[in-house]
């Protein structure tokens, strides 16, 4: 029973891609946690800003905690922030997931029709996130 909430946050603190990964089945899934995850992820942005200059790495590891939820973050060279709110430790998986998503994001951002900081509405991107999520987070 694990839940991961992944969000890519643009420069204006606006979410541009959101996805939830969970092992819970449909009935058990609590819709309600979704807004809490947003709150936690949003609040963690302050800590991302605090940590990003302290390390040379893009992986910011676990930066915040709220009750049983951890927040792990990743920051791209262009200051796009990847954030995962999760309820169990999985540093290695999250690290790999971030790396793969970074790759995917870079490719997507090179699309001439995509404007930076706008919501990502690509089924390919969605599918990739789904695959990496299943591969690194849920196993």
């Amino acid at each position: 029973m694990t839940t991961y909430y992944f969000v890519i946050v643009g420069h204006n603190d606006n979410p541009i891609f959101e996805k939830e990964f969970t092992t819970l089945n449909k009935e058990m899934r609590k819709e309600d946690h979704r807004h809490l995850s947003q709150f936690i992820a949003h609040a963690a942005l302050d800590l991302v800003d605090e940590h990003k200059w302290k390390t040379a790495s893009m992986q910011l590891k676990s930066i915040d905690r709220f009750n049983q939820w951890f927040v792990s973050a990743f920051i791209t060279a262009s200051q796009i922030r990847f954030i995962i709110v999760h309820d169990n430790k999985n540093d290695e998986g999250i690290k790999s997931f971030f790396n793969e998503m970074y790759d995917t994001y870079i490719k997507h951002s090179m699309n001439a029709f995509y404007k930076i900081n706008t919501p990502i509405k690509s089924t390919m991107f969605e599918k990739k996130a789904e695959i990496f999520g299943r591969k690194y987070l849920l196993t």
Partner: peptide, 13 residues
């Protein structure tokens, strides 16, 4: 803080 940032569910709450 949240308005016009598109954190849709948080905004709804």
């Amino acid at each position: 803080v949240f308005q016009n940032r598109h954190w849709s569910l948080a905004e709804d709450h």
